[in-house]
């Protein structure tokens, strides 16, 4: 009964949820010798699509050797992530089909769907390019990289927070 209530809670603290994520990240290294991450999965998806449509670019070194068109470890991890988040949201009643964020975005930027989708699109383009240059994202470099004691992890976090804070200052201005 207690266990069920724990799973039905709307929110877990960052300590609890973060600790569980840390265990998952450590397990990934120990049991599969792979890094728990997400940006690499999107790279594989691009490679699969490029090869599916038989584009000229699919015959370059990058799409043949660096990111071959196969569903790799992180791509399979996507299935688990979406399923896990879906169940978590269902348990707590947080699941809802929504087109834009009702908190912060709606009161500040209004209910324009085009505005939200445009900002999100360009933001995500930058996220993937940045992650590919750096060699990982918030989970791969920011969590696993840091606890494996790789300097790359700390360099990445420094870059993310410096640029993120400056960008937020520019976007929110007086409302920062």
């Amino acid at each position: 009964m207690r266990v069920l209530e724990f799973f039905k809670m709307k929110r877990w603290s960052g300590f609890v949820a973060g600790s569980l994520t840390g265990i998952a990240a450590a397990l990934s290294c120990l049991a599969a010798e792979k890094v728990m991450g997400a940006s690499g999965g999107f790279e594989s998806c691009v490679s699969i699509l490029v090869s599916l449509f038989n584009l000229d670019i699919s015959r370059t070194v990058y799409f043949i050797r660096v990111k071959p068109p196969v569903a790799d470890y992180q791509t399979l991890q996507f299935i688990g992530m979406i399923a896990g988040a879906f169940l978590a949201a269902k348990f707590s009643g947080d699941f809802k089909l929504r087109w834009f964020p009702d908190k912060v975005w709606l009161p500040l930027f209004g209910a324009s769907r085009v505005k939200r989708l445009t900002a999100l699109f360009f933001g995500c383009v930058l996220l993937q390019i940045g992650a590919s240059i750096a060699g990982g994202c918030t989970s791969g470099l920011g969590i696993t990289g840091v606890f494996l004691l790789s300097p790359a992890g700390l360099l990445f976090i420094t870059g993310v927070f410096s640029a993120g804070i400056i960008t937020a200052l520019l976007i929110y201005g007086r409302k920062y």
Binding site: L126, T138, T158
Partner: peptide, 15 residues
């Protein structure tokens, strides 16, 4: 690592 992180940070704050 640094530059990629910075590009990522801009995207994260926007998205």
């Amino acid at each position: 690592n640094l530059l990629g992180g910075a590009v990522f940070g801009v995207g994260m704050a926007v998205a």
